[in-house]
Design a protein around this nucleic acid. Structure first.
Lengths: 200, 200
DNA sequence: TCATCCACTGAATGATCGTTCAATCAAACA
DNA sequence: TGTTTGATTGAACGATCATTCAGTGGATGA
């Protein structure tokens, strides 16, 4: 059996990735050291290079981990909501501000990677991995809500940008608006849209 | 007279700051080297430490330079627009997507600093320097447009977040939505607001 | 023309950090 | 219990970079 080798390996990798997120949130991406990551996981300096090819690989896999986690949360939010398009969008808005996804550690890490993504093809690809799909899903939902066409496309674009901007704001102004207020901003916008006949 | 010393000094400092923005836009903040900045300005390696105390000082002053430039653009946009609140907001929206402010170099630099601002008090302070004022001005404008209170506050918050998010999107999806489309998204939102009696 | 003053140069320095690897340890199996 | 296998350690290494500073050059004023 390979339990001994493979199982601990995956466990360690996850621990190290979580420790990387911690370090990015506490010290920033630029100040994150291999030694910090190892110490954060309670291990010695050489461990990261044993489980990951290099620091770059570790960081890329950390971003991929966050990206997959976000994708899961998105998918599950839709699955657990009524099939009605308004309820679907409301569920997605709610998901963006629930503590499991929208917490200081996660948002700080996302923001740090975004800041470097403009000049790093690897990060850019990972950030965009599901973007087309998110956009397409929202365009469909808004098509049902306010009718298909350019308006639906713009509504989808607005909501995606709004999530990014509100997350950024939560991070930079910790004493400012709360997650609850940010969610209220999204919902107020949604409920102010000129719904087509068949809404709710 | 001190012309010889002080005048070239300020000129060099500005050249080095512009070269820093170039380097951040091309290589990223993490990959920006003192040697890159000097070479970009056509000078030798030691020059940056001659005009700035350290790399950290150079980067902080670069962010301050961007912040002041943005403040000027904001102020001038309002000055050059009719006093009417709707026209004022439209002018601010237009300013956010005109090439002088919304170009790849500037937006890439902003985004890079934002990514590090969460963990660097110096950057955070510079990013937030005028934030309270921007918010207050928008709350006033929306107070006139849709009536004062929580709704005006949320509209102001939404627009600020939207600008951030749309800029981020322009940077990460260069082949996606254009600046013109981003502006259209803002304007469409603005014109869909339930205006108070005295609008326009 | 000479002296002075600085902006500027770039080789040298030293600190920081990612990476390597020989040695150690511990779990699983015979 | 002894053996094997692979995870883990951490000291040492080497590369990269910010920073320094003794020296250069050229402009200014006498």
């Amino acid at each position: 059996m390979k339990t001994r080798r493979t199982q601990p390996r995956e466990l360690r990798r996850r621990q190290l990735i979580e420790s990387t997120i911690d370090s990015i949130a506490r010290r920033g991406l630029a100040e994150t050291r291999m030694a910090d990551v190892a110490a954060g996981a309670g291990m010695s300096v050489g461990i990261v290079n044993f489980h990951f090819d290099s620091k770059q690989t570790l960081l890329a896999e950390t971003l991929g981990y966050l990206s997959d986690e976000y994708y899961d949360a998105w998918t599950r939010a839709r699955e657990n909501a009524p099939a009605d398009p308004l309820a679907q969008v409301e569920a997605l808005i709610g998901m963006h501000f629930e503590p499991r996804i929208c917490n200081q550690r996660r948002v700080a890490a996302w923001s740090a990677f975004f800041g470097e993504a403009g000049t790093r093809p690897t990060y850019q690809a990972l950030c965009q991995k599901f973007d087309d799909e998110y956009l397409a899903q929202l365009v469909d939902l808004f098509g049902e809500l306010i009718g298909p066409g350019e308006h639906a496309r713009r509504a989808a674009m607005l909501l995606l940008a709004l999530w990014d901007g509100l997350w950024q704001n939560l991070l930079l102004n910790p004493g400012g608006f709360s997650a609850a207020e940010s969610e209220a901003v999204c919902l107020e916008w949604l409920h102010g849209l000129p719904l087509a006949k068949s809404g709710r």
